[in-house]
């Protein structure tokens, strides 16, 4: 339960990060808040030979709003985002989800971009990014590119990020204030990995439902012209269409049941606050 031998590099500029990644990309991991990576290192599930600590890079701090998007750079901790004054106005769904991300003791250190990079299928932030049509800004020494959330995640803890790239920021479109939103999740203990989590965004009779914890990647379904009476059937069909599997925490049947129940609750709540 100790990390393998590794070099620790404390970066002070983005150029520091880019040059280390360009020279030793595949053997290098970015260390931000460390709330996922350090556990992986302790268990030797990750064995990089170099860690780049990016938390002292001034260019990667501070939440801003640019071109209709809330920009969250790589060194922004989850607690900082939760405390950011603009959160509930610009991203009401994310504001509802923040208290469910890990525990107070891990939100205080963990970063928003770090959770996106880790790409745990039951984590709240990847679900939020996909449900809210967010995007990931990637940068290497050679290029910059922006990837839509739906294309960024490629499987359980897998993303399309190349070895020489790092996540510079994630961006969420600013809410127009007209949609209703809701979030719920079930886990064994508050703050533990969600068995199933559901997020809903409602506009009139159109509803988007995001489901985490079931498939390898958070899943979204758009329902247009949804009548209240049609919700149970729609959710039952959705629950069966997902790739629910049993594990130590819950069997597949229970996961489907949670999709039906949590789904109905969040859709109901989102529709209610939309009107």
């Amino acid at each position: 339960m100790k990390p393998p031998p590794l070099d620790y590099i404390r970066a002070f500029t983005t150029q520091d990060i880019l040059s280390v990644l360009a020279n030793a990309g595949s053997d290098t991991r970015i260390l931000a808040g460390g709330q996922s990576l350090m556990a992986m290192l302790n268990m030797r599930l990750a064995q990089p030979s170099i860690l780049i600590d990016i938390m002292h890079v001034g260019e990667l701090t501070g939440v801003t709003i640019e071109h209709g998007k809330t920009v969250i750079p790589a060194a922004v901790r989850q607690a900082e985002l939760a405390e950011w004054q603009g959160l509930s106005k610009t991203l009401p769904l994310l504001a509802q989800m923040m208290p469910w991300i890990g525990h107070a003791q891990t939100r205080s250190r963990g970063t928003v971009c770090g959770s996106i990079a880790h790409a745990d299928p039951s984590a709240e932030l990847p679900l939020a990014l996909i449900t809210l049509d967010g995007e990931v800004a990637l940068r290497s020494r050679k290029r910059r590119r922006v990837v839509q959330a739906a294309d960024f995640f490629s499987g359980t803890m897998l993303t399309c990020k190349e070895d020489d790239e790092f996540i510079e920021a994630v961006r969420f479109p600013v809410s127009d204030g007209k949609a209703g939103t809701a979030f719920r999740e079930i886990g064994r203990r508050k703050g533990d990995f969600a068995i199933v989590s559901c997020a809903a965004i409602a506009r009139g009779k159109s509803v988007r439902l995001g489901v985490g914890g079931v498939n390898d990647i958070p899943f979204i379904r758009d329902f247009d012209g949804l009548e209240v009476s049609g919700i149970p059937d729609a959710l039952n069909e959705l629950a069966w269409s997902l790739d629910a599997r049993g594990d130590l925490h819950a069997d597949a049947r229970y996961r489907r049941e949670l999709v039906r129940n949590l789904g109905a609750q969040v859709i109901g709540e989102a529709l209610q606050c939309a009107t």
């Binding site: 990390p3 620790y8 260390l31 350090m38 302790n42 860690l51 250190r109």
Partner: peptide, 12 residues
Amino acid sequence: RLARACLTLAAQ
């Protein structure tokens, strides 16, 4: 701010 000492390197 709260932190898990086991998820932090001494160097950090």
